Amino acid sequence: MKQRVVRRQKLVCDACYAAEEIDHLSYDMIGKRCPHCDTVMLTAEDYRIYYRLEWRFKLREWFWRLKAALGFKVEHGLISRSVITEGELVFEARRKGLL
């Protein structure tokens, strides 16, 4: 049975930690204000870091698909969590299991 990929994203305020679930982070959300404390939840710098991280994941996925198509053994099951706060990226990854 194939595992289902779950991608949950939350936009979290750096000041009061109020969280808002979102479907996908987009360029239009830059400058979005927190409903509780009225500070900016997503800056242009945070979005730039997120966008670069997303492209790295897409390139890695394409590379895995190419390896599988060529007949190489490909291990799946990488679980990751990334947090971007005030221009800093914290990335955690593990091969199977929970974070």
Rank of each mutant, 00 (worst) to 15 (best):
V83F: 01
R8Q: 09
V74H: 01
W64M: 11
A19H: 01
D23S: 11
L11N: 14
V90H: 06
I79D: 09
C13F: 04
A19G: 03
E75Q: 02
Q3R: 07
I79W: 02
F72A: 12
R95Y: 04
L98W: 09
K10R: 11
L89G: 03
E61S: 09
D38F: 07
R94T: 15
T39D: 04
T39A: 02
S26E: 15
V90Y: 04
D14N: 15
L59K: 14
E21A: 15
D46Q: 08
L70C: 08
V40I: 15
A69Q: 14
Y47V: 03
V74I: 07
F63G: 02
L89V: 08
C37Q: 05
F57H: 14
T43W: 05
L11E: 13
V12S: 04
C37A: 11
L25M: 15
D38K: 14
M29F: 03
I79T: 08
R81W: 01
C13V: 05
W55P: 00
R33V: 14
K2P: 08
V5D: 12
I79K: 10
E75D: 02
R56Y: 03
Q3G: 09
R52I: 12
I79F: 00
Y47A: 06
D38Y: 07
A44M: 09
H76W: 07
T43M: 08
K32F: 12
K73E: 12
R7G: 14
A15I: 09
W62D: 15
I49E: 02
E45P: 00
R95A: 11
D23F: 04
A18C: 03
L42K: 04
L66N: 04
K96I: 02
R95F: 05
C16L: 08
A19C: 02
